[in-house]
């Protein structure tokens, strides 16, 4: 059993394809960890910072809010701009535009600006400066399932990987201070920068896949990523009965790569009903078909995490 004498274990839940059920399963795991006979002191992280949903299920009772200041964008002071065109020439992000008022000066589209500051250093009239952007908020919340670290990146902003790393650092410190034995990271979809940040330091990756051509395609990509970072992997199949041929493919694929399938969760309306209620499915409908399989998955996960 996971206990406090051991170092903190980190479980990351990923999928490649979006919408396979990462967050619903993360929430259920949070519930089961708290509820198991030997209660496991768990810290929870929602690492999907631009579409953060875990708090909608775990329903924090209180939250502390912190600002996230990310990168900077360039800003041109119109009165100093002499319209020399050099910034426009240098910018590789198509972010510099002339004013339409005939003033022979330029402005920067903050949405397009990548924050590289090439223009700042090259402007002869020192008309350009970098302005740091508040790119979101992050939260340390109390839920009945444990402390939750989550964030809201403002729509369209960059640096989601940086924000994920930031909340993970805070979560880890909290876990150490409170002698937690498990950190559960609900990861983002895809395989890019925030996913890489979500994986960092993980002891085990649980891939939630679905038996669809898209699910299987993206399963292979996320699996390659986790193998690249040498993170041990287990799989569970959600909505396992929507396409039997796909399920067979995942079984075959997993056996070829010697990856354990910890459970096959059937398509179950209770998962969405629980989401609507704002509760983990295992808590709202403990006897639902999906809850029973997730319980089995959890038991096996505990076993794996103790070994790893």
């Amino acid at each position: 059993m996971l206990n406090q004498a051991n170092p903190i274990k980190q479980l990351v839940i990923l999928s490649g394809k979006g919408g396979t059920g990462k967050t619903s399963i993360s929430a259920a795991i949070a519930d089961l960890a708290r509820d198991s006979k030997n209660k496991i002191n768990t810290v929870l992280i929602d690492a999907d910072v631009d579409a953060a949903n875990l708090s909608l299920v775990l329903q924090p009772q209180q939250s502390e809010t912190y600002e996230f200041w990310g990168g900077s964008v360039a800003e041109i002071e119109k009165s100093k701009c002499i319209g020399c065109d050099l910034c426009k020439l240098l910018c590789r992000y198509d972010a510099v535009f002339p004013y339409a008022d005939g003033s022979n000066s330029y402005f920067i589209d903050p949405i397009a600006c990548d924050g590289c500051a090439a223009c700042v250093y090259s402007c002869a009239s020192e008309a350009i400066r970098m302005v740091q952007q508040k790119e979101g908020n992050w939260f340390h919340s109390k839920t009945v399932y444990g402390d939750l670290f989550h964030a809201e990146l403002f729509p369209g902003k960059e640096n989601s990987g940086k924000l994920v790393t930031l909340i993970k650092q805070h979560a880890r410190l909290w876990a150490q201070d409170t002698q937690a034995s498990l950190i559960v990271v609900d990861g983002p979809p895809g395989i890019g920068c925030p996913v890489i940040s979500a994986c960092a330091g993980a002891d085990l990756g649980l891939i939630v896949t679905e038996p669809s051509v898209a699910g299987i395609h993206d399963l292979q990509r996320i699996l390659s990523l986790l193998q690249h970072f040498k993170i041990p992997v287990v799989v569970c199949i959600n909505k396992s009965d929507i396409y039997p041929k796909g399920k067979e493919k995942i079984r075959q694929f997993s056996s070829d790569y010697k990856i354990d399938i910890l459970g096959e969760i059937p398509y179950d309306k209770h998962i969405i009903q629980a989401m609507v209620q704002g509760r983990p499915v295992t808590r709202e409908y403990p006897n639902a078909p999906s809850s029973k399989v997730i319980q089995e998955i959890w038991n096996k996960l505990v076993c794996r995490l103790t070994k790893c």
Binding site: D50, L153, P155, G156, S160, P188, G190
Partner: peptide, 14 residues
């Protein structure tokens, strides 16, 4: 577009 609401979605929508 990709899922989410960060820079890659903005790049697609531009």
């Amino acid at each position: 577009a990709p899922p989410g609401a960060s820079c890659s979605v903005v790049e697609t929508l531009r």
